[in-house]
Each structure stands twice: as C-alpha cells, then as structure tokens.
Nucleic acid binder design. Structure first.
Length: 287
DNA sequence: CTTACGGCCTGGGTGC
DNA sequence: TGCACCCAGGCCGTAA
C-alpha cells in the first residue's frame, strides 16, 4: 500500500520520465475514481509536464497548457491502496484493471492500474488545489520537533490515530505508523496528550529515521506496490512489527501481537510498548 | 472537538 | 472444485 516512501519513489520515477514531456491523448476505462472524467479528456491533451510534486500520499503533476501560461492545471493522483503508475511502451502487455492511458510525445505512455479503485484522480486549478489539499498537515520529514510536539500534545486521540490522520502529519499509513511506534516504544493506544516529552522526541526521531530509510530502499512491497519501472521496494525486509504477529520482537524476544486500534490492525510488542493504564474516566464517584 | 462505523472495491486466504 | 465468508485498508461521509 503506497505510503510516503512509496509515493516518493514513484514521484522520483515520474520526474525522470515525464518532465518536459507533452501529453498527446487520453484514454479512459473505468472512471468512477476520477472526479471529472470529461475534464481529463478535455484538458490534458496538448499540455506539457512542468513539475511533479508529492504532498503526503498525493501526487501533483503540474501542467502548462499549449496556449500559453494563462490556464495552468494540475493532475492530482492518489494511489489509494492498490494504485500503480507505469511509464512504458504502448506495446507492452496491459495488466488487468488498467484504467487510464496518457500517450506521451516520446512514444511511451503513462498507465494507471488500480485493482480496488480506492485511488483518486482529478484535474485541479490552483484554487481547487487549495480546496482539495488545504486540509493536509505538515510533511513528517520537514516538520520541526517543536511543531510535532505541539500537534501531538494538544490532542486527546490515540497516538496511532494521530499518526494516521493526514491533517496532523501527512504521508504515514498503517505500516510506518506501527513501525515508528515500535521504535519509539509507545503503545498505539496511548493518548497523544499523555505522551511524555521523551516519548514525543523518540517518536519524532523514529518517524523521520524510518521514513528516510524506507525511501532509500524504495519503499515496502507488501502487496501490489511497485515503482514506475515495475520494480519492488525492499523495506518490507526491515519491518520490525508490521504483519509479524506471533514472531519474536527484535528487541526483547517476546511475541509480537496485534489488535485493532483506530479501526486498523495494529502490530506491537506489549513488552516494549506497554499498554497505557486506562484511567476510568467520567465514572465520578458519588457520595 | 472526538470516536465509531459503514461504504467503496477486488483478490487472496480459509473452512467446509 | 466450488462456494460462502472474511480480511486487507485510505479516505470520506454520517451519526452520536
């Protein structure tokens, strides 16, 4: 599932293949994951790729129109759970569930394949970008420790939910949230506001270290993920807890467990990440 | 503000 | 071999 390191890897591949390329034509199959399919077909042909940006798990392809600079648009791509982008010869075999084809002026095409169609595509003007992406939080690799602390300590949600909440920090999903919490020795159910300064510091450092390492290894390929050249990432070999239920903790040897936290399966070591004392709240003692 | 949950979607795994 | 069932989870909308 593409999270920040996987999307970053894809963004880099797209920069290499797409900068300066012109889009010649658009072909669509299923369109239920596209905000306005007609706008895709109408506005993309003839545009040139100026820039590829990544905001959390979102990709933005900034385009210059053929008729000058007056009407610049961006193509928003969110890969959801199973979205894949390939930049490849039109003669290559077409995988199942390929729904978008953009033919390019170098003879190749960009293909979007998405089994579950949890992804999203949209054509956005500058003002629409603000509307659609304005709620996003800060990049976890750019946020300061001070700002991170403020965003965690001000919340009464479980820390796992905060890490998954894209308006707090943007880009982490289930894998990297679990991994960061294990490194920081924090139980996923611990409430953000109850973290100690030392815990926040460990979490901040763990989050950044893990994301950097995962980007270096081109992401985690646990199910469908692959980059724009069809290559898999290798960070899954470094997972300490994610999907390691029943295996030994690399730090203390006790067994990794899992539980549902914030509606997601969460993996942790109960010995390294002790469960928070659940304070009996609002059972006010009477008389 | 917060949590909880259903819905979207398909393939892979399990149990019978 | 088939079939019913459940699970994976990012994100959005709704309800409490």
């Amino acid at each position: 599932m593409p999270e920040l390191p996987e999307v970053e890897t894809i963004a880099r591949g797209m920069r290499e293949a797409l900068l300066g390329r012109r889009i010649l034509s658009v072909r669509l199959n299923k369109t239920d994951f596209i905000d306005d399919p007609a706008a895709m077909e109408l506005r993309l042909p003839g545009t040139t790729v100026l820039q590829i940006r990544r905001l959390g798990k979102n990709l933005l392809v900034d385009l210059r129109s053929s008729d000058g600079e007056k009407s610049s648009v961006s193509l928003l791509i969110h890969l959801g759970m199973t979205g894949q982008i390939a930049i490849i010869s039109p003669d290559a075999p077409i995988p199942k569930h390929t729904h978008v084809f953009l033919s390019l002026d170098d003879g190749r095409e960009l293909r979007y394949t998405d089994v579950r169609r949890f992804g999203r595509m949209a054509i956005l003007s500058d003002s629409e970008q603000e509307r659609v992406l304005g709620g996003l939080g800060v990049e976890p690799l750019e946020i300061s420790e001070t700002e991170f602390r403020a965003r965690i300590l001000s919340r009464n949600s479980q820390i796992k939910a905060l890490l998954l909440n894209q308006s707090v920090v943007r880009g982490m999903g289930n894998i990297y949230a679990d991994e960061a919490l294990w490194f920081a020795k924090i139980h996923p159910k611990k409430v953000g506001a109850k973290l100690t300064d030392a815990e926040v510091r460990r979490l901040y450092r763990a989050m950044q270290q893990i994301l950097k390492e995962a980007i270096r290894l081109k992401g985690s390929s646990v199910s469908d993920y692959q980059d724009t050249d069809g290559q898999k990432g290798t960070f899954q070999a470094r997972h300490r807890v994610y999907q390691r239920d029943g295996e030994k903790c690399f730090r203390c040897g006790s067994l990794i467990r899992h539980d549902t936290v914030a509606g997601r399966s969460s993996h942790f070591c109960l010995r390294c990440q002790p469960a928070p004392r659940n304070r009996a709240k609002k059972t006010r003692r009477r008389r």
